[in-house]
């Protein structure tokens, strides 16, 4: 399989913002590698931006056989129409069987335009991907707030899907890996109908990346009490999470919300205080390594979904836990 374009079995969109590769890209490479190997074909990545030679090589270290690089000042920032035009041209050239894009805001803005342009099917927000016996992509996604899962197949090519961040395994970086970077010709479009006037850093809590989450639920009696959660989260170097009712009540921002309509998280430790565990909430945190739950109600579904649970009052446990952790920290100092 030299540089034959026709062997591009799986294409993934390598997402970047400010020249930094979004980590969902490495998860796409992880899953894409598995799928491409099973198909006996290449795994390719498409990267658009400006000054991204190093980043293109990184994609190879993370598993890509070939990287199609569109490097041009006009592609520095995300421009839906420009990105779409270049990618559609590439897809028509290399004809991948499967085309995966991260289900981030950028990915979910871009993917439907590409799919509509190619008149192909697109499945949103997949949490798993598989191949059937004929090598067709089986796309698995939650439906109806995560209460049910649906398997979806696409009868057109490429079979396109956006993939939820933090559910697939990241590939492992191997700087000894070899692959090709193909510099693509960029056809500059003067006016795409959109112009970025300003760019501001959105300095919000990034709960998807958190290693430790201290989450609050309906068991919390007043918004002031969230200060305890913040205290514990700060002690552990973690982030405060929340179930939906507190967000709806305006006690805490949506960036803290864990669940189907909020964020999917995958921390090493997820601590749930006063969260009953609706399917919608469980959907967002079920990939956590260790789940510790504290709830007064012994019938709360959350308890069955946890590794360790305490039947008790969060107003007794939480301050005590803060106290104990302070003790440990002081002894160490």
């Amino acid at each position: 399989m030299s540089d034959e374009c026709s062997f591009c079995g799986v294409l993934i969109f390598a997402e970047q913002e400010d020249g930094e590769i979004h980590k969902v890209t490495y998860e796409l490479l992880g899953k894409g590698r598995v799928l491409a190997d099973r198909l006996g074909k290449n795994l390719c990545a498409v990267l658009l931006g400006y000054g991204l030679d190093d980043e293109a090589r990184e994609l190879i270290y993370y598993g890509a056989d070939k990287v199609f690089l569109f490097d041009h000042p006009s592609l520095k920032d995300f421009d839906i129409v420009r990105y779409k035009q270049n990618i559609v041209r590439l897809v028509n050239e290399v004809k991948p069987d499967i085309f995966l894009i991260g289900a981030t805001r950028i990915g979910r803005s871009l993917a439907p335009r590409i799919a509509a342009s190619l008149k192909t099917g697109l499945t949103a927000d997949c949490v798993d991907l598989d191949l059937d016996n004929e090598g067709n992509l089986v796309q698995i996604r939650p439906a109806f707030s995560g209460n049910i899962m649906a398997q979806i197949k696409t009868r057109t090519k490429p079979q396109m899907a956006t993939v939820r961040y933090k559910v697939m395994k990241m590939s492992i970086r191997d700087p000894a890996r070899r692959g090709g970077v193909v510099e693509m010709k960029v056809e500059p479009v003067k006016n795409t109908g959109m112009k970025i006037l300003e760019k501001e850093k959105a300095d919000e809590v990034n709960i998807s990346e958190a290693e430790i989450i201290v989450a609050a639920g309906r068991g919390v009696k007043s918004p002031e009490d969230l200060r305890l959660f913040k205290e514990l989260a700060d002690l552990l170097g973690g982030v405060v999470g929340s179930s939906r009712p507190l967000v709806d009540a305006g006690w805490i921002g949506k960036e803290h919300q864990v669940g189907f309509s909020g964020n999917t998280v995958k921390p090493r430790v997820y601590m749930a205080f006063g969260i009953s565990g609706s399917p919608q909430h469980l959907f967002g945190m079920r990939y956590s390594d260790i789940i510790i739950a504290v709830n007064k109600d012994p019938t709360a579904p959350m308890l069955n979904f946890s590794d360790y649970y305490v039947i008790g009052d969060l107003y007794e446990i939480l301050p005590q836990l803060i106290h104990e952790i302070r003790k440990v920290r002081c002894v160490e100092k």
Partner: peptide
């Protein structure tokens, strides 16, 4: 172009649920 081929209830994750 897309078809739902199967719908199912996700299997409950097995956790050890050890009481403290």
């Amino acid at each position: 172009p897309t078809r739902v081929i199967r719908v199912y209830t996700p299997a409950a994750e097995k956790r050890k649920s050890q009481v403290l």
